[in-house]
Amino acid sequence: MSPVLEVHDLHKAFGGIKAVNGVSFSVKEGEILGIIGPNGCGKSTLFNCILGQLEPTRGAVKLDGRDVTNMRPSALNRLGVSRTFQLLQVFPELSVRENLILAGQEHQGSMLGRLFGARDAGLSEKAEQMIGFFKLGHLADAKAGGLSYGQQKLLDAAMAFMAGPRLVLLDEPAGGVNLTMLGDLKERLRAINAEQGATFVVIEHNMDFVMSLCTRVIVLAEGKVLAEGTPAEVRANPAVIEAYLGH
């Protein structure tokens, strides 16, 4: 079976600074891949290049064997690739429910159908499910801008899953989330992975979170892949210890 996501020799330079310097990896269906590395090692730039938010200097990104390098983010999303953001990215003026419906609406019907056809067909139910699943029930009609940081983080994740994506790229999902919610989040992610067979790529600083969630881990340093393996292997790798202690 061909991998869901293939990243081939990706480069990204900003002026003279090589933020991503020849990264290659692939992700199999149903896998939870963690990407870790010290600050400034190019993780977020890597994500942005994969997702068409930045134009890579060189290299290719393939989805199910199909070249999607430089595809526009919205088009890529409609192919079933979604993401969460490191910094909060919800729509503060819309309610939690509307945020979720919005996250799903572009995945069905046509542009004109959305305007003249049955309004939000099936999306309300799906949003309700997501609200229940991420335990946001009491907040469904509240404006997203008024939620606590952790709740917005959950909503952000829920939005990424609203359209039933095949591949989800999570950018520091655990950042700033308190311990109880962290457990919740991990449990939700595992459940979605198991039930829907969704594939995850997770960037994270929280080692415990990554090591307990991911099946495989890639370590980036200075824009390159430093090590790769199961959480246990990576933890034992002297080069990784060196990279982390060295910084």
Binding site: S74, N77, S82, Q89, F91, P92, L94, E106, M162
Partner: peptide
């Protein structure tokens, strides 16, 4: 409100 996030949701 947020064009980048909107694009990432397929809009």
């Amino acid at each position: 409100e947020n064009p980048v996030r909107a694009a990432s949701l397929g809009i």
